[in-house]
Amino acid sequence: MSLTLDDVKRVAMLARIEVTDSESEQILEQFDGIFKLIEQMQSVDTTGIEPMSHAQDVVARLRSDAVTATDEHELFQSVAPEVEADLYLVPKVIE
């Protein structure tokens, strides 16, 4: 497979990362090598092998339904870029 400049730009938009045209070209060039490496995976037949998502084969431990958190919004918002009336401010959200 070979990636195109459009792929790079589409992926950058999905990832919300601004890339200039020259950056895209550079990324595309590096992707070429990286995906050659990644493509080596296709050399093995993995039919019937169950994908492994976790390092251990254990199941979820659940927490009881209890309120354990306290109100810490002042502390959390002390590191926020912009806050007003206890709300995080962002450029206008348009639906």
Binding site: D65, A66, V67, A69, E72, F76
Partner: peptide, 27 residues
Amino acid sequence: STKSKIFSGAATAFGAPPNTQASAVDV
């Protein structure tokens, strides 16, 4: 209608002042 959130220990009550029921996990 649980007391706490699905993945954190913050309360789920409706109508609390903004962000007072947003725990570290929720933020």
